[in-house]
């Protein structure tokens, strides 16, 4: 069974500005009242990069990382699970999943992983 996307965004109750990650006060109006919002729909790639010099903890040749925007406006960073031959482009729609993104102390850490539709 597919895991639910574990991201919670915060919509300001006063001015409707959407935040992710969490802030104690709204970045626009400084209000402290937020409504929790789950990301919805597909994710559009806003930007991405393929990193070849990886940090400690990643035993692989490269990692593709991007910032995406969900259909309800939530923006988040995630790993993009496509191979080097895949012609990734900004604006492309991806399928969001919640999957292991790294291992720490022998346990999986889950996060946003974007998959291609085709």
């Amino acid at each position: 069974m597919q895991k639910e996307i574990g991201i919670v965004a915060y919509k300001c109750r006063k001015c409707s500005k959407l935040h992710y990650p969490y802030h104690d006060r709204c970045l626009a109006c400084k209000s402290r009242e937020f409504e929790q919002v789950k990301p919805e729909g597909k994710a559009r790639v806003l930007t991405f990069t393929r990193i070849y010099n990886l940090p400690w903890g990643f035993d692989q040749r490269y990692l593709t990382i991007g910032v995406v925007e969900f259909e309800n406006g939530v923006r988040a960073m995630g790993q993009i699970n496509v191979d080097e031959q895949f012609d990734l482009k900004t604006g492309m729609m991806m399928k969001p999943t919640w999957a292991p993104v790294r291992e720490q102390y022998g346990e999986h850490v889950y996060g946003l992983v974007l998959e291609s539709f085709g």
Partner: peptide
């Protein structure tokens, strides 16, 4: 820590995403 670091993003990675845009 939660919105970026866990994904393995590096400063060159941040610069790569900025550069693309």
């Amino acid at each position: 820590p939660l919105a970026e670091y866990i994904y393995g993003v590096t400063l060159p990675g941040m610069a790569g995403m900025f550069a693309r845009l």
